[in-house]
């Protein structure tokens, strides 16, 4: 699942779409204008984002309005937090290893 989250956001156009949606829900036409690529491209990326759970859509008359869902972004945050914790612990162990070396050197002298 983590890989999916990253893979989905790996595409720069999809990231631009997501950034454009940060301000709130939007119709495809508005997104086409903001992201500056052809409508078929925006529609294709919206479908991928929708399938991956990043966006949801609701009808508004003849228009379809797209907006972001929080879940995958929360997952991304949790994932990054766990990765950070892994490295925090790793750097603590590096500090312990350094201390062992200093101590061993002192004992030798």
């Amino acid at each position: 699942m983590h890989a999916d989250v990253f893979q989905t956001l790996a595409d720069p156009t999809r990231r631009r779409i997501v950034e454009a949606l940060l301000g709130g829900e939007q119709a495809v036409n508005d997104l086409v204008e903001r992201v500056a690529i052809h409508q078929s491209g925006v529609s294709r990326h919206l479908r991928i984002l929708h399938d991956a759970g990043f966006v949801e859509v609701r009808p508004d008359g003849a228009k379809r309005l797209y907006s972001l869902r929080a879940a995958p972004f929360q997952e991304l945050d949790e994932w990054v937090t766990r990765y950070r914790e892994l490295w925090e612990a790793r750097l603590d162990r590096l500090g312990e290893a350094l201390e062992r070396r200093q101590k061993a050197r002192k004992e030798r002298n």
Binding site: R15, E19, L22, F73, L76, D77, V80, W87, E88, L91
Partner: peptide, 14 residues
Amino acid sequence: GLQASTGAKQRIKL
């Protein structure tokens, strides 16, 4: 939260 996830990059400095 979304801003934190998508804005700029998820770069972490330790």
